[in-house]
Design a protein around this nucleic acid. Structure first.
Lengths: 335, 335
DNA sequence: GTGAAAGCGCTAACAC
DNA sequence: GTGTTAGCGCTTTCAC
């Protein structure tokens, strides 16, 4: 049962392998009649071109790679959906590699994904160490970053969402509509870019409204329910004066809500609460959570589009910022 | 900037390409000293073997393929995590293909994933049409199915979860502990295997307890919140007598809960409610939902393990059934 | 323990 | 419009 090759097809159809190749790839002219005969033979023989041979000969893998630090979180599925479907539309296959959680870091000289087996890479947040990123950049290998700024001096295109502006609008809303002045912020993990910009928006909103920034009111949320809950508990115990909480993401908002509720503090009457992300759960919380929605799937689509552009032309937009949208529910005090 | 090849390494290290290949793949004996020199040269030159060339020469892709009907749902991320991490542990790359939703069906003779570019496939539910499955089976290509029984006559290994037994235990619980006798079932989509077995478990529980099966009490849930809500609304309007609902999945349970609550019917006092899946939301519902938890990530791990076995030995277990676990909360009447 | 050389299945000049 | 053929970069006998 040895594999059927292009030579078999050529022989059976009474043409050369070059002609078969031409009809398959629609490269170069072939007489309509010949083409028809070849196509017939192909399906008769149930022939399928061997991907590796094609790649080796053409220097194109027709595959794009996706590197993920870990497969989890509410945004994973929609993001991958955007990426997979767009890649498919361009006729590209998708190779994915997710860094093993807690696994030993890969030896430098053997990442399973890269220029050896893809035409370009989409890298999510800190999926790849700076060194590998530099190497790829140096050999002009197409890479697009998602939710991540390139390291110093590397002009790598990136696509991400508008964090600052919507964080700011959210806090503006708290101040202007609901008259809150003592607004706490639950920060995400250290060095997390999304968290950084959300905090930035928070600070700008305060400043604009002449409210002094109080470092005491910035706590560790860790983009995590338990951590946020503990932090808010501490605030309550210590009697920190707060009339609103901007949680860095909806997970920490969920934890904050639990801490508040357990302490008999009413949301939004005593303390208004807002989050970021609009996870499924947000609308089921009690009260339903006011938050910000990001176009996650579209981030994936856009990343692939930029990557395709980069592969084809060598150029792409250095920064693509996708707009986010306020989702007003009841936890801020509305309704 | 032409690519560094094995020949460059060989030359620089003063050996033949065969020797370099041997140290890279640890195939065949090499003097320790020679090996060291070669390794040094490799990292000096920053050499990376070209995947396609390797594949072409060795007839092994070292890649496994994953076919998905669509990227969504609560189980997607953990399932993929199980698959990706296990594949990685075996040193395999992961190529994924998800059928475009609403896209025209692929031409028969060109699936982007298959024997041309992978060593084996994991297929989720109805990811691949029967015809392609038959073709692959015929050429003895390794395939493992997830959450899906192979078509008639094809002995393809599959791994899935215990639906029937836990559905039955759930309904037993409703009958024995909470004394319910008029238990409705919200079925999933037509021909959905999980739904089929869950209903089977439901029927068995009824039968065991001498409760006649009443077709009136089986409604369309569609594994969907809206559909389930509409169905339950209809039941209420028509005055169907019900003291419990077994929703085929948690999404339909959520819809059922909304319909019940809106009609002023108390859960669990008037009508007990149970679901299946244990989605994140389940514990946040009011009351928290009693349901069944499936080891989703482990399904992925197991599928890859079976596939690896199949690739290596040509054999695998025809059916792997992973146990599920009752998660008792308050919507059934407990506590 | 090591090297020479024949492919693996395809593409892409180039010639006709 | 079509055929010939030289690689693509690697693995793998087979000698030595």
């Amino acid at each position: 049962m040895s594999r059927i090759t292009i030579a078999d097809v050529a022989k059976q159809a009474g043409v050369s392998t070059a002609t078969v190749s031409r009809v398959i790839n629609q490269t170069g002219p072939v007489a309509a009649q010949t083409a028809a005969r070849v196509r017939e033979t192909i399906s008769e023989l149930n022939y399928r071109p061997h991907t590796a041979a094609k790649t080796l000969a053409s220097h194109r893998t027709n595959t794009i790679g996706l590197v993920f630090p870990q497969i989890s979180g509410y945004y994973f599925a929609p993001l991958l959906r955007g990426i997979a479907s767009t890649a498919g539309e361009y006729g590209f296959d998708l190779l994915i590699y997710s860094v093993q959680e807690g696994a030993a870091p890969r030896e430098l000289d053997h990442y399973p994904i890269g220029d050896q087996n893809t035409d370009g890479l989409v890298v999510f947040t800190s999926g790849l160490p700076e060194q590998e990123l530099r190497r790829l950049h140096q050999i002009s290998f197409p890479v697009v970053l998602i939710h991540c700024t390139p390291p110093e001096g590397l002009a790598i295109p990136s696509v991400t969402i508008e964090n600052k502006a919507s964080a700011r609008r959210l806090v503006d809303h708290l101040i202007e509509i609901h008259n809150r002045r003592h607004i706490a912020f639950l920060a995400g993990p250290q060095a997390h870019e999304d968290s950084y910009w959300r905090e930035k928006g928070y600070r700008e909103a305060l400043e604009t409204h002449g409210i002094a920034f109080d470092p005491e009111l910035v706590g560790i949320g860790g983009f995590n329910e338990q951590i946020a809950q503990a932090t808010v508990k501490t605030w309550i115990r210590e009697g920190v004066q707060i009339d609103a909480i901007f949680a860095g993401d909806d997970d920490s908002a969920t934890g904050a809500l639990t801490a508040l509720t357990q302490a008999g503090i009413y949301v939004p009457e005593d303390v208004a609460l807002v989050g970021f992300d609009d996870i499924d759960l947000a609308r089921y919380l009690n009260p339903p959570l006011t938050t910000v929605r990001a176009p996650v799937e579209q981030v994936g689509r856009e990343a692939i589009q930029q990557l395709m552009h980069l592969i084809r032309t060598g150029e792409a937009d250095l920064l693509t910022l996708l707009p986010t949208e306020l989702v007003i529910r009841r936890s801020c005090g509305c309704n």
